[in-house]
Nucleic acid binder design. Structure first.
Length: 866
RNA sequence: GCCGAUGUGGCGAAAUGGCAGACGCAACGGACUUAAAAUCCGUUUCCGGUAACCCGGAGUAUGGGUUCGAAUCCCAUCAUCGGCACCA
């Protein structure tokens, strides 16, 4: 019947302070121009990846990154920064829509409920978000600007000379729709019958949908695309100036996949042998390939087209039509999964046609095979079996000629077959004896001079498939008239989706919005676009909206943008100072957001070319059983359950004490208990229980300077905690504070100044406890103001950290033998003499001759013998 | 296959060229208590020795190397996790 006794009254303190903070608008960040705004303060923008508010609520994994950013935010405020620390909701998306399909509950309702639940949880953890800046991607006042940004993208193109986005009006060609950054294309898409929608490549995993795991097939459909490939170079090159983990940069580089090489044209042989360009009857009859190894051109003994390549129909000879068509049918029937199965044998079919190798005028056969992909390069390759693993396998299987053209070091030409690295050119009249670099330059120059090819760069990155056949997303601000698309005027935004009762997919690939007949009909001769935008759209720019969330004239005001997203450190390209989130967004969200940012930057709306200067990925928190937290294993932990027993401060501290932020680590309730004991020790350091069982300020607390030893630990702790917060090493910061608290507990004096410093250091981690204790101390000892948040972060005194005596480690041959203490000012010679006089050292040396003595001042002596 | 990360006590971890295992958990012992909880104090890498203060040896995935000295730097191997994957 009696509740379990709390180690300290967090259940009273925490709600008290949370209410006070709300009432005082304690975390509201002021924009330039607002009353009380202090322009002398530097800004700090610390951002979390905002969540999708699911029905399940938060589990303990979510607040890991949020706690880290909250500590930084509170720390920076104490250091005198004007801190922007906002939170919002990425609330468009499939789960709410599927819930609507099942229950008929409108996603607006579900979203509102889920957001309320998430917000309650976040508030109960005591995060210092500026809730007056809350944004929600499904709010018309927000997506009005998502649609507006889409229109900017739609109305722009990349000028190849400046490589920058410009208004489409500067384009001088005759078909602007061909160069717009948003365009419509008939593309093979990932169609998921079960979800009734297409998916982006990134949302398909092993031939199945990322959401739900349903089968996905290829199917051509008319889709909106965003021309992200026009920014491939900048997205790659501008990673350099960002403080991101190298692994994330590597993932993005890999995803963009830039390859330097050459385009080469192979004339199709019409039985007349090789003809110089000018004499050719049919100048179009060439096969263009892309290769990263033009230096191996003399080794190209055959060509392969992708089975889907339209050229196949033109070149296939009468005799081979049957077998070619049969092969293409088998390939078309295969799923993506089967096609990309690496283990399988090479397959292919001969077209009967031949091409001419422009280098040596050899007549080489043209095949089709599914190991050549239509979607990369030109959908055709030159086969160089001697120096390409796949080509070699293919040539051996179909008995095609193999000519080595690069010599492996120390090997004969014959042995160099299968050598994939670079080397000296052989069997290549124009290139013999040249190194890879020389040969590559020479052959490309030759190709360019003779009109057979040119330098070229290709990317793995594809344009972004931007439309979805869904209800719960931003409608496109676009109408169709006479088969052509037109942008809506800005004045017509926001374009809200129609009210629908039936959210089910139509099943035909036509979006659910097509069911709203009245809504679609825009005018006598125009209809609305019925696709919606993908969930990534809203998250591409939310960090900008946080700077100025209520602005109804612009997506973000100029001045707030310049203040929060710019800064005085000129050579930093990014705006947000610290961005923490899951590694699962390493390529998609982070690449898309960078892309939008660059478009808006080119148009002069933004101060910096990159959105996020410093990025950190928090590691996943596993269940107590070491498995990923999921309903399936029944190992999900709700933060509110933990807070109920141990309090929010203990929850926060434990999340940070578990281990390094970036690392994956398992949850442990016992661990929370340990951290909770630490906080209770802090409490009892300052408070005691009176006869009536009430907590009152301890009578021993006095306004005195601490003794030397605790004072030294105190200053060592200021130094360590400050440094650790800057590097996000929160686990070791907490360890150090535990050491301090142990020392203060054992110290004879209960020193108010020491306690104040401790409370300040601990405040970002355990804000409720430290606020309460600070206030209690202030009531009796009026030295400090009664609000801990109005204080300055403590500084340490280096002179207090110096030792007067130093412990020196004695080693013999690198092995520890003893420790001695020497005076601070002992010379190397004195230290060495003391070491050699040491009995244990002498024992270990035995009778052996001393060859060398290494003295590291203030650290150790190593005696090397024999 | 390619790219990246990780590998240290019973467990989470610390130490990034100089005392391996800070801090915490768990376990064990002690104090307080009629008792328990809570709290406080102590022990706790492994092996061997000693009545004992202690003494000796080994030890950071494995094998080599650099160095007076390596968990830390280099080379190779193995394992686990993540990403990409017939990208020409």
């Amino acid at each position: 019947m009696n509740e379990r006794r709390k180690p300290y009254p967090f259940d009273r303190i925490e709600p008290k302070w949370q209410t006070l903070w709300d009432e005082r608008r304690a975390f509201h960040a002021l924009n330039p121009g607002e009353e009380n705004f202090d322009p002398a303060k530097p800004k700090y923008y610390v951002l979390d990846m905002f969540p999708y508010p699911s029905g399940a609520g938060l589990h303990v994994g979510h607040p890991e990154g949020y706690t880290a950013t909250d500590i930084i935010a509170r720390y920076k405020r104490l250091r005198g920064f004007n801190v922007l620390h906002p939170m919002g909701w990425d609330a468009f998306g499939l789960p709410a829509e599927q819930y609507a399909i099942k229950t008929g509950q409108h996603p607006v309702i579900t979203t509102r409920e889920n957001v309320a639940k998430f917000k309650t949880q976040l508030k109960r953890i005591g995060f210092s978000y500026d809730w007056e800046r809350e944004v929600n991607t499904t709010d018309p006042n927000y997506y009005k600007w998502t649609q507006w940004i889409f229109l900017q993208i739609y109305n722009s193109w990349v000028n190849p000379e400046t490589k920058k986005a410009e208004p489409i009006s500067t384009y001088r060609g005759n078909d602007p729709d061909n160069v717009r950054l948003a365009y419509v294309a008939e593309v093979p898409v990932n169609w998921c019958q079960e979800l009734g929608t297409v998916l982006a490549n990134e949302e398909v995993i092993d031939g199945k949908s990322e959401v739900g795991g349903f089968p996905v097939v290829r199917r051509p459909m008319r889709q909106w695309m965003l021309r992200i490939t026009a920014f491939a170079d900048r997205l790659l090159d501008e990673l350099k100036g960002l403080d991101w983990p190298d692994s994330i940069k590597a993932l993005q580089r890999n995803w963009i996949g830039r390859s330097k090489g050459a385009e080469i044209d192979f004339p199709i042989d019409r039985g007349m042998g090789f003809q110089p360009m000018s004499h050719r009857q049919d100048a179009d009859a060439t096969i263009r390939v892309f290769t990263t190894r033009p230096d191996t051109l003399y080794g190209a003994t055959y060509m392969v087209l992708a089975p889907e390549n339209p050229l196949v129909d033109q070149i296939t000879t009468e005799e081979h039509r049957g077998s070619i068509s049969q092969y293409r049918t088998t390939i078309a029937a295969k799923s993506d999964l089967e096609r990309t199965d690496l283990a399988k044998e090479k397959t292919g079919a001969f077209t009967g046609a031949f091409a001419i190798n422009p280098a040596n005028h050899e007549r080489i056969p043209i095949w089709i095979a599914d190991y050549v992909l239509m979607g990369y390069g030109t959908g055709a390759i030159m086969g160089v079996p001697a120096h390409d693993e796949r080509d070699l396998e293919f040539a051996r299987k179909f008995d095609l000629q193999i000519i080595p053209v690069v010599q492996a070091p120390g090997k004969t030409p014959e042995e160099s077959i299968g050598y994939l690295e670079v080397g000296i050119a052989i069997n290549s009249p124009l290139l013999n004896g040249l190194s890879h670099v020389e040969a590559t330059t020479k052959i490309i120059d030759w190709l360019e001079q003779n009109g057979h090819g040119r330098r070229d760069i290709r990317y793995k990155l594809r344009d972004w498939l931007f439309s979805r056949q869904r209800y719960w997303g931003e409608p496109f601000p676009v109408i169709w008239r006479n088969g052509k698309h037109e942008a809506l005027a800005e004045s017509e935004l926001p374009l809200e989706p129609p009210a629908l009762e039936d959210f089910k997919p139509t099943g035909t690939g036509e979006p659910p919005l097509a069911k709203a007949k009245d809504w679609i009909r825009y005018s006598e001769d125009a209809v609305r676009e019925t696709n919606t935008m993908p969930q990534w759209a809203g998250s591409c720019w939310y960090y900008l909206r946080f700077c100025d969330p209520q602005n109804d004239r612009r997506f973000v005001g100029e001045e707030p943008e310049r203040y929060w997203m710019g800064d005085s450190i000129a050579d930093r390209p990014g705006g947000v100072d610290l961005y923490i989130g899951g590694v699962e967004h390493a390529v998609l969200h982070l690449l898309y957001a960078r892309f939008w940012h660059k478009v808006l930057f080119d148009f002069g709306y933004l101060s910096k070319p990159e959105p996020f200067q410093r990025l950190v990925n928090q590691g996943m928190i596993l269940g107590e059983d070491g498995r990923k937290m999921s309903k399936r294993w029944g190992n999900v932990i709700d933060p509110l359950d933990v807070i109920e027993i141990y309090g929010a401060d203990a929850f926060r501290c434990y999340e940070m004490f578990m281990g390094p932020l970036e690392q994956m680590k398992p949850w442990s309730m016992k661990g929370v208990e340990g951290v909770s004991r630490f906080l209770a020790r802090v409490w009892r350091l300052i408070m005691e229980e009176n006869q009536a069982g009430e907590w009152i300020l301890s009578g021993e607390v006095e306004e005195v300077v601490p003794d030397k030893s605790p004072l030294k630990i105190l200053h060592a702790t200021i130094k360590k905690v400050t440094g650790d917060i800057e590097t996000l090493s929160f686990n070791t910061a907490i360890s150090q504070m535990m050491i301090l608290v142990n020392a203060l507990t054992n110290a004879p004096k209960k020193s108010v100044p020491a306690f104040r410093t401790l409370l300040l250091l601990l405040n970002p981690f355990a804000p409720h406890l430290t606020s309460e204790l600070w206030q209690t101390l202030a009531e009796k000892f009026p030295g400090g103001a009664d609000d801990i948040m109005a204080q300055r972060w403590p500084e340490y005194d280096e002179t207090l950290l110096v030792e007067d005596e130093i412990e020196i480690v004695l080693q013999v041959n690198g092995k520890l033998r003893d420790k001695i203490t020497v005076a601070l000012d002992a010379t190397n010679a004195e230290t060495e003499a003391a070491a050699l006089a040491n009995k244990k050292v002498q024992n270990a040396v035995g009778g052996q001759a001393i060859r060398k003595v290494v003295v590291v001042p203030k650290k150790l002596v190593n005696v090397v013998t024999g």
